[in-house]
Computed example of a mutant assay.
Amino acid sequence: MPKVHVFARDHINTDEIIPARYLTTDIESELAKFAMEDYDKDFVNRVKPGDIMVTGSDFGCGSSREHAVWCLRGAGISAILAPNFARIFYRNAINNGFLALESEDVVAAFEDGDEADIDLATGKITNQRTGQSVAFSPVPQFALDVKAAGGWLEYMRDHSKAELEAETLNAESTEAGHGHAGHDSDENPAPGTQRA
Rank of each mutant, 00 (worst) to 15 (best):
A86M: 01
E102V: 06
W70E: 01
A20P: 14
D58S: 11
G123I: 14
V47R: 05
Y90N: 05
T126I: 02
G74L: 03
A100K: 02
H11G: 03
E30P: 05
R91W: 10
R65S: 12
E37N: 06
P2C: 12
S78C: 03
V44W: 09
A100C: 05
Q132T: 15
D26A: 12
I18N: 01
D42H: 09
A79Y: 00
Y22P: 01
V44M: 10
E37I: 07
N95L: 15
F85P: 00
H67V: 07
A32P: 02
A75P: 02
T55H: 02
R87N: 10
F59C: 10
G60V: 04
G60F: 02
F59I: 02
R46C: 14
V134S: 07
G74P: 01
H67G: 14
D40M: 03
G62C: 11
A35G: 05
E111F: 07
T25D: 00
G97S: 05
F7N: 06
A75T: 07
N95A: 15
L23A: 06
V139Y: 06
V134A: 12
G131P: 12
G131N: 11
A68Y: 02
G131W: 05
S133Y: 04
I77D: 00
R129C: 04
N13P: 01
S29V: 12
D105I: 10
R87D: 11
T130N: 11
N127C: 04
C61N: 03
Q141C: 11
P19V: 06
N95S: 14
H67F: 04
H11C: 11
H5T: 11
D58F: 01
G113P: 09
L120A: 12
A135W: 02
S57P: 04
D26I: 13
V107M: 11
H67P: 03
D112I: 09
R129S: 13
G131H: 10
A93R: 12
T24Q: 14
L23D: 04
I27T: 14
I27Q: 13
F43M: 12
V106T: 09
T24N: 15
I88S: 12
R9D: 15
N84W: 00
D40C: 05
F85A: 04
M36C: 11
F7S: 08
Y90R: 10
D119Y: 03
D10N: 14
A135E: 14
D105Q: 13
A121I: 13
A35H: 04
A75F: 00
S133L: 09
A32I: 08
S137P: 01
E104G: 06
I94N: 12
E111S: 12
I80C: 00
I27A: 15
R46K: 15
D117N: 08
G74F: 03
A75L: 04
G62F: 00
E111M: 07
H11V: 08
S137A: 15
E16P: 01
T14Q: 10
P138Y: 10
I80Q: 01
S57C: 00
G76Y: 05
G76S: 02
F110E: 05
P138V: 06
T25N: 03
L72I: 09
D112M: 08
T130G: 05
N13A: 04
M36A: 08
A32Q: 11
F98G: 02
R87Q: 13
D105K: 15
L81E: 07
Y39E: 15
T55K: 03
F34D: 09
R73H: 03
T14V: 06
A121Q: 14
L120G: 08
N95V: 13
A79F: 01
R65K: 14
A20W: 13
Q128N: 13
A116G: 01
